[in-house]
Design a binder for these strands. Structure first.
Length: 421
RNA sequence: GGAGACGUGGCGGAGAGGUCUAACGCACUUGUCUUGAAAACAAGAGUACCGCAAGGUACCGUGAGUUCGAAUCUCACCGUCUCCGCCA
């Protein structure tokens, strides 16, 4: 959510930002509605003031006749007030609806574009492997080594269901622990956070309204979050933080649920696109400074790059174009890892910053040196999402004899094992 | 799942329809006194919105309702605690 005052004072910037994100929102209507809201608010508050004043007089007054007369008068004032309150409420409801649709303004460095096809590579690392033998794809490797069972997965869990087995399961544990250890060393606080959350948590992080179709919901109208970011950000909702403790850095582990509505035909096989997966997420709450946000954004991106390098997985970083940004994101990098069988990079990480878009919705503030309260800034990036990334590991690390080498940095988490045979 | 109790300002805790929306205590800030501190005394201090300002409005878990007037009465929801049951 943006500050209505900011929207009014920077109408053109907000409109241009929405255009860049390909979001349709009527800013002129919003501003007219806000003027209306303020006018009605003043009228309602004046009436309430009058009722308060006279009602106090009634309480103090001993003259019965005067009392009755004043009560009569207040009855009619109250009727007037009720009608105006009703009208104000309607105005506010409509106002809020539009306010929730106004996207955050993308950074100047975000390229123009409509979809992920127009994202731009900013750097790449690693040698794409060439195989002097016939390369196998992830499905073959998974099947040959019994790393997962998709048939029984869909029998039990439904479309896109899976069981992880043997080294398939062990690789997940190893990856979680490897990334977690490294993030703890970099000052992150480990957390395991809920996936089952209230609607408010999803509104606060910007997934609702807009993302309902991709979210599972239960019979109590709670939702299953698609990322640990949702619960982690909501952890401090409606709280005032100590400035000295900022930035707060969390490495949050959670199960993630995504309906993948509208992508039924895509990536139907393998680990890439599943309804239920496991993710370690970096989440940061920082002081409200653009420079600090940019610095931390580069930092959480580098955190992942360092570890992909340690895993020796070829990757590149793309800056997302305006049309591929979420409602609240100011700027986003996707980190994509090389998948040999597809001869392309596939997204494994997503790194964004939001300024105060989320903290304004979640009401997370801190007291600045000026003694005033400020909405904090927020950022997040994947640390590691499993089993998706295992697809790339299996293919990049496959050997001529059909075995798969285990990345060196993971071996200590897998009992020293060197190969999946 | 069953039964009961309870949600008040940073904390503790009163208030049970009208002298102002919050007693009292602790903590906090400033001042007096003191070489300094402690103590004592005095004063001050919440958040949001509207307004150039004076000032106004809202906030006693949340939301509705009753009333001229609600922290106080009614209803729903959320949460906490205790006991029973079940359970990893």
């Amino acid at each position: 959510m943006l500050d209505i005052k900011f929207i009014k004072e920077n109408k053109e910037i907000v409109q241009a930002g929405a255009l860049k994100k390909k979001v349709e929102v009527d800013i002129d209507k919003l501003i007219a509605l806000d003027d209306d809201r303020l006018k009605q608010l003043k009228e309602v508050e004046d009436l309430r003031g009058e009722i308060n004043r006279v009602s106090n007089d009634i309480g103090r007054n001993q003259d019965q006749a005067l009392k009755i007369q004043l009560i009569e008068e207040m009855r009619s004032v109250k009727e007037d007030l009720k009608a105006r309150e009703e009208k104000l409420k309607e105005t506010i409801t409509e106002w809020q609806k539009i306010m929730l649709q106004v996207p955050n303004v993308p950074d100047i460095s975000v390229p123009e574009g409509a979809s992920d096809e127009e994202n731009q590579e900013v750097r790449n690392w690693g040698e794409k492997p060439t195989f002097p033998f016939e390369m196998k794809d992830q499905l073959t490797l998974i099947k040959n080594h019994d790393l997962a069972d998709f048939e029984r997965g869909s029998k039990v869990s439904g479309f896109r269901g899976y069981f992880l087995k043997n080294e398939g399961a062990l690789l997940c544990f190893a990856l979680w622990q490897f990334f977690l250890d490294n993030l703890i060393n970099r000052g992150f606080t480990p957390m395991i956070v809920p996936s089952l959350v209230k609607k408010q948590a999803l509104m606060g992080t910007g997934y609702i309204p807009g993302g309902e179709d991709d979210l599972y919901r239960n019979q109590d109208d709670d939702y299953f979050a698609g990322t640990g970011e949702v619960a982690t950000m909501s952890y401090y909702s409606n709280e005032i933080l100590e400035k000295e403790k900022l930035p707060l850095k969390f490495a949050s582990f959670s199960t993630c649920f995504r309906r993948e509505a509208g992508s039924h035909g895509k990536d139907v096989k393998g680990f890439f696109r599943v309804h239920e997966f496991y993710k370690l997420e970096q989440v940061i709450i920082s002081e409200a400074s653009h420079e600090e946000s940019v610095k931390l954004h580069e930092e959480i991106t580098k955190n992942v790059e360092d570890l992909l390098i340690a895993l020796n997985l070829p990757y590149h970083v793309v800056v997302n174009c305006g049309g591929d940004l979420g409602l609240g994101q100011v700027k986003k990098y996707d980190i994509e890892v090389w998948v040999p069988s597809q001869n392309k990079y596939r997204e494994t990480h997503s790194s964004s910053y939001f300024h105060d878009f989320q903290t304004r919705r979640l009401n997370i503030k801190y007291r600045g040196q000026d003694g005033k309260l400020h909405y904090a800034h927020s950022l997040n990036n994947t640390a590691v999402a499993t089993p998706r990334i295992i697809e790339a590991i299996l293919e990049n690390y496959q050997q001529e004899d059909g075995s798969v080498k285990i990345p060196e940095v993971l071996r200590k988490y897998m009992g020293g094992k060197e190969f999946i045979k």
